[in-house]
Design a protein around this nucleic acid. Structure first.
Length: 352
DNA sequence: TCGCATGATTCAAA
DNA sequence: TTTGAATCATGCGA
């Protein structure tokens, strides 16, 4: 409200004396009437506009109507709009220019990647599957966690879309309301279509900020969910007895070279229903722990050695020694010789 | 609750 | 990239 009298005053000064387009506007609308008379007319209109707020509602309505019907009104409003455009709005417009928001793009990309925004692809099952793979196992516990993750992600997705829809609806409603209001007001005060457009942009920006907050909190929720799910990686689950036996069997039967090749790891992983990385971890831990405390593992080693001997005897009795990864003879078959030759020697020597 | 066992992770070295 | 070593985090039995 404070701006209006100032604007009008400024318009009066500039528009009356200095605005080059005014004469033309007036020419257009008056057909070249007397200059002094026109000034008087415009002065009257401005005076009426400025005092309209001091009047009662009825008086103001009547005055408004009279103003709207005034022959000079369109020309005057055009001039005022132009002045406004050149002064206030151009400054504000320059200030409002913003670079494309990188943070918003990042949020959008993340929500898309997590399957929260964009077309539904099974509620982010790809991300869940990746997380499950990282968790290192396909056991029943994992599939339960997987579906739990999916369900929670789906919830987040649903909330996100509901809220987004609400914001969009509110934005549209508010924009329409403001546009109607400005259009209505443009009958009594100089508001150009460009100004309305700017106002719409401002509203959209404000709502984008709210949307960004929604996206940000959704991302946070996904990150929390994801980290909780991925934390399951650290949840230690003991391998089942059979898996440990397979691993130990291989380890003790290859004690001279406990470095399974990729093929051997894959086979062991398959037999133990664990991942190749878990096999690698297991052998890594086993080697170091065995080396650190041979005495402690001696009994275990003897037991597996005896078992291997029995197996070997049985196999030779049945005339077949082929393809048993648990027999020492098969070491060469599974061992990546070029990679582990040195380690084999050092490990073996280290144990003697 | 404590201590040990054990799978996972991290980081440096080869 | 793989491995060793240290460490973390959790399971589990006493």
């Amino acid at each position: 409200m404070d701006d209006q009298p100032r604007l009008m005053h400024s318009s009066h000064g500039v528009g009356m004396a200095g605005h080059p387009g005014l004469a033309q506007h007036m020419q257009d609308s008056t057909g070249g009437a007397d200059g002094e008379g026109r000034k008087q007319d415009i002065g009257d209109i401005l005076q009426q506009i400025m005092t309209i707020t001091d009047q009662s509602l009825d008086e103001a309505q009547a005055r408004k109507h009279a103003l709207n019907c005034h022959r000079m009104k369109p020309a005057l409003f055009n001039v005022l709009c132009e002045i406004k455009e050149k002064t206030v709005l151009s400054i504000r417009g320059a200030q409002e220019e913003e670079p494309p928001d990188a943070q918003l793009m990042r949020l959008d990309n993340m929500l898309l990647a997590e399957g929260v925004s964009g077309p539904e692809k099974g509620g982010g099952s790809a991300a869940a599957a990746a997380a499950a793979a990282a968790a290192g196992g396909g056991g029943p516990d994992n599939s339960a966690e997987h579906s739990d993750y999916r369900a929670k992600l789906s919830q987040i997705r649903q909330i996100y879309h509901t809220e987004l829809e609400k914001y969009e609806q509110a934005c549209n409603e508010f924009t329409t309301h403001v546009m109607n209001l400005l259009r209505e007001q443009s009958r009594t005060r100089p508001i150009s279509p460009k100004e309305i457009e700017r106002m719409v942009n401002i509203i959209h920006r404000k709502f984008s900020t709210i949307q960004m907050q929604l996206k940000q909190s959704t991302c946070e929720a996904v990150m929390i969910l994801r980290s909780r799910f991925l934390d399951a990686r650290r949840k230690r689950r003991n391998f089942n007895k059979q898996a440990t036996e397979f691993l130990n069997e291989y380890f003790y039967s290859h004690l001279s070279n406990p470095y399974p090749s990729e093929e051997a790891k894959e086979e062991l992983a398959k037999k133990c229903s664990i991942t190749v990385s878990q096999v690698s971890n297991w052998f890594g831990n086993k080697r170091i722990r065995y080396k650190k405390n041979i005495g402690k593992f001696q009994e275990e080693a003897n037991m597996y050695a005896a078992r291997t001997a029995v197996t070997a005897t049985n196999v030779s009795t049945h005339g077949s020694q082929a393809n048993s990864p648990s027999t020492p003879n098969s070491a060469g078959e599974y061992c990546n010789k070029s990679t582990h030759k040195q380690q084999m020697c050092s490990f073996f020597i280290g144990l003697q």
